[in-house]
Amino acid sequence: MFDFFKFFSKDDNTSKDIARERLKLVLVHDRANISPRFLEMVKGDIIKVISDYMEIDEKGFDIRLSRIEQEDNNYTSALVANIPIKKMKNIGKNKG
């Protein structure tokens, strides 16, 4: 019975999958020589800048280093940010 359930839950939760995902993430940081702490600093500054223009959901703010494949099959690091917008501010819209 135990094995029966294990069979169905296997795909997402095995410890090797966790190991693989954790490793992939840590290696992206290692290779780019950027620490998670550094990313937090970048995140703080981005929030400061764009808060002048829009109201954002800081909890949903996701910033990470990722690898993207280029045309020549080489990988390059990319800074990927996903910033949910709550509301646009009016400042700046009508300027100029």
Partner: peptide, 16 residues
């Protein structure tokens, strides 16, 4: 351990 998903297999390691 590989069989029960508790150790990274050859492909995982090479891929990483």
């Amino acid at each position: 351990m590989v069989k029960r998903g508790d150790m990274m297999d050859i492909n995982d390691t090479i891929d990483i």
